[in-house]
């Protein structure tokens, strides 16, 4: 029989077998549906997928938060006007605001009022402070077009020329540090994610091979009653895909529930100091669609990996059997 003809027979038998399995839903599966090795494999897959999903969610959260920090800061700069002898603070603030608003690349400028300034200083000076009696600096907040930012050096120069007591803080030092930190965090997170993924892959591969070792006799029996390699491999692949999907979905869904629970906890405790601290760092503590998509991708990958490992193990075992047979592939 030629290779092509054998291949066609192989496909026909697989299709017929599949059709029969649909027609006979109660037929005992060729690979036993549940045993200790299978349950252990499902548990291992669930645990590893849970850990990997937490890592995916964590990296996604850090990445999104870092991006948000960077955007927030790069969209705003401040000008500080220090009090000085003979300086009319209100005039100086208004001058700064006018200069800023007339500068290309600036989308808005506002003077931080006394009440807001008071709130900023509250932790140090306490409540009810009369700012007029104290020589405290005042701020002008300038919104900038992050796509087309102004020339910060020229703006600073112009401000100093007209209001010598003013000082432009364009946050560039902060931004560069935050960008560097964000990049480091995402890089470190990606590295941890890569390690967790590799560990997951290896664990799934070895656990699958372990579970397969209990099925060697089934492979051999099928082989010697004349089953084609493709048929045997498909039977095991289907069985292990199911185990992989159950395990991976359990782990992935649990991880998503953890993120959802923490998210809802921070939402419902916005007024408390703990939640405020978490919100300050992570916003709403939501991993976003990217994170959820990553977890779903992980579930599919782990299940596919389990199925492919079982197929590879069966194929290798059959090759071992045939290596001692009188034929060479």
């Amino acid at each position: 029989m030629t290779d092509l003809a054998a291949h066609l027979v192989d496909i026909r038998e697989r299709v017929l077998g599949w059709a029969n399995s649909l027609r006979q839903p109660r037929a005992t599966p060729i690979v036993p549906p549940g045993n200790v090795a299978g349950r252990a494999l499902t548990t291992v897959i669930a645990i590893m997928t849970f850990l990997a999903s937490l890592t995916v969610g964590g990296v996604s959260l850090v990445s999104e938060t870092a991006g948000r920090w960077q955007n927030d800061i790069s969209e705003e700069i401040t000008v500080q006007v220090k009090p000085a002898e003979g300086l009319d603070m209100l005039v100086a603030l208004e001058t700064v605001r006018q200069i800023a608003i007339e500068t290309p690349g600036v989308v808005g400028a506002s003077i931080m009022d006394e009440a807001s300034t008071g709130r900023l200083l509250e932790p140090w000076l306490g409540e009810g402070v009369d700012l007029d009696e104290l020589p405290v600096p005042r701020l002008v907040i300038i919104g900038i077009d992050s796509d087309d930012p102004p020339d910060f050096a020229a703006l600073g120069e112009e401000l100093r020329r007209q209001v010598p007591q003013s000082e432009l803080d364009d946050h560039r030092a902060w931004v560069s540090r935050l960008v560097a930190m964000a990049r480091s965090m995402v890089l470190a997170g990606s590295f941890v994610l890569a390690l967790v993924l590799i560990a997951t892959i290896l664990t799934v591969v070895f656990a699958t091979r372990g579970a397969m070792s209990g099925n060697r006799q089934i492979v051999e029996v099928l082989h010697f009653v004349g089953a084609r390699a493709g048929f045997i491999a498909s039977e095991f692949q289907r069985h292990f895909l199911r185990l992989g999907l159950i395990g991976a979905a359990t782990g992935g869904v649990l991880a998503m529930m953890v993120f959802a629970l923490i998210g809802s906890w921070t939402d419902s405790n916005r007024a408390t100091p703990e939640a405020d601290q978490i919100s300050a760092l992570f916003g709403s503590f939501s991993i976003g669609w990217f994170g959820y998509a990553g977890v779903v991708g992980l579930i599919v990958t782990v299940a596919t990996l389990t199925a492919l490992t079982s197929r590879w193990t069966v194929t290798r075992h059959l090759a071992e059997i045939d290596m001692i047979s009188p034929v060479e592939g």
């Binding site: 029989m1 054998a6 027979v9 009653v225 084609r228 034929v327 592939g329």
Partner: peptide
Amino acid sequence: VATLTRRDLPSIRRRIGV
């Protein structure tokens, strides 16, 4: 049997009961 390929084996094994 020296000329058989792996794909040929099942169809021959099916004619041999073990």
